[in-house]
């Protein structure tokens, strides 16, 4: 390489071009020809018009700056978020939204984890659920109506199908509706973790009503449950039910310890097995793996103590009055 090339700018530029193209071809262009770069899970569903509109909002607001959408195959990560991301889940992602920074948590498995109502409340005012969250408020999304014609042109650009009535229905929807719909779409193609396996209704709380367990349960409850079920466990309207009220227990006023445990451990997945109907979009989070089994039992101890306490507090109150009471979360 001695000398001459550094006197010939055209040859030099050509040589530099070749130098930068070699790696580009091998690692960027050539892989495009390989099927392993275009996988698609059979369970993967394309965006509906509403979900795509939600994804557009997600892009516009720059959510990708703080949230990733890919779970790494690492033990702690799978426990925290759910199964690690599969190549075939991103067939429709243009562009990909894996992100590069987790100022907030990963969202790849967010769909189906929580009820729609939780997301409406959280997007509008994150601090109402997590006091110390640093997420901006997105209440303004609930004021902005979707434009069906615009969404239709976006669907067309992506080659996605949408029935005319589906598009027309968008006129009644807000950007918030769309964002929540997209959030619930995330991760749907991979079966959510089935939880701890078979239900054992005969299981008995090993911690019983020991004061130590109740105190521990109160702390665990405060850390993990109050966001949806309220500080006292009385629930949050439209988000999550009152846990101390008999009505929650439906036909089975005294739910056995084993059923409580299954519901907390496996979340909504356990509801079917218990013969209770779950919410259509998400519902109870599965806490199995996120918090130790002992802590789940402690929460049950705490809730039982709270129930007993409530019964003692209001012995004279009529049952009807009790039900009609205004509940503050």
């Amino acid at each position: 390489m001695a000398g001459a090339i550094y006197r010939k700018p055209v040859s030099f530029a050509l040589m530099a071009t070749v130098a930068v193209l070699v790696g580009s071809v091998v690692t960027m262009a050539y892989p495009m020809l390989r099927p392993e770069m275009h996988p698609r899970l059979d369970s993967l569903k394309a965006f509906t018009a509403l979900q795509l509109a939600g994804r557009d909002v997600y892009q516009r607001e720059g959510c990708v700056n703080c949230h990733t959408q890919t779970v790494r195959p690492l033990r702690s990560e799978v426990v925290r978020y759910g199964d690690y991301s599969k190549a075939g889940e991103f067939y429709y992602d243009r562009p990909f939204l894996w992100g590069s920074k987790r100022t907030g948590p990963d969202l790849a498995r967010e769909g189906g984890k929580r009820p729609d109502a939780w997301h409406y409340k959280h997007y509008a005012n994150p601090q109402s659920i997590e006091k110390k969250s640093n997420m901006p408020k997105y209440a303004f999304l609930a004021e902005a109506r979707l434009d069906p014609a615009e969404v239709a042109s976006h669907m067309r650009a992506l080659g996605l199908a949408a029935a005319p009535e589906e598009l027309a229905a968008l006129a009644q929807k807000t950007e918030m509706d769309a964002l929540v719909a997209y959030t619930q779409w995330l991760g749907h193609a991979v079966q959510r973790k089935a939880g701890g396996g078979a239900l054992d209704l005969a299981a008995v709380n090993p911690l019983g009503d020991s004061p130590h367990a109740i105190a521990r349960g109160q702390k665990v409850f405060a850390d993990n449950c109050t966001a949806c079920h309220g500080d006292e466990g009385h629930g949050v309207p439209e988000v999550a039910p009152d846990l101390l009220d008999d009505s929650f227990l439906g036909e089975k006023p005294d739910m056995p310890d084993g059923a409580w445990f299954a519901l907390i451990h496996d979340g909504s997945d356990a509801k079917g097995a218990l013969g209770r109907k779950g919410m259509e979009n998400g519902g109870m989070t599965a806490f199995g793996g996120q918090i130790p089994d002992d802590d789940i039992w402690a929460v049950i101890s705490y809730l039982r103590a709270q129930m007993a306490h409530e019964k003692k507090e209001a012995p004279t109150m009529e049952k009807v009055e009790h039900k009609g009471q205004e509940r503050k979360p």
Partner: peptide, 24 residues
């Protein structure tokens, strides 16, 4: 990018390729 409007477009590559081209 595939234009979908004056100020809206979608990446010409999807999923893994979108990621790979972007970080290249």
């Amino acid at each position: 990018f595939i234009p979908a409007g004056l100020w809206k477009s979608y990446h010409a590559y999807a999923g893994l390729n979108s990621a790979n081209v972007q970080w290249w």
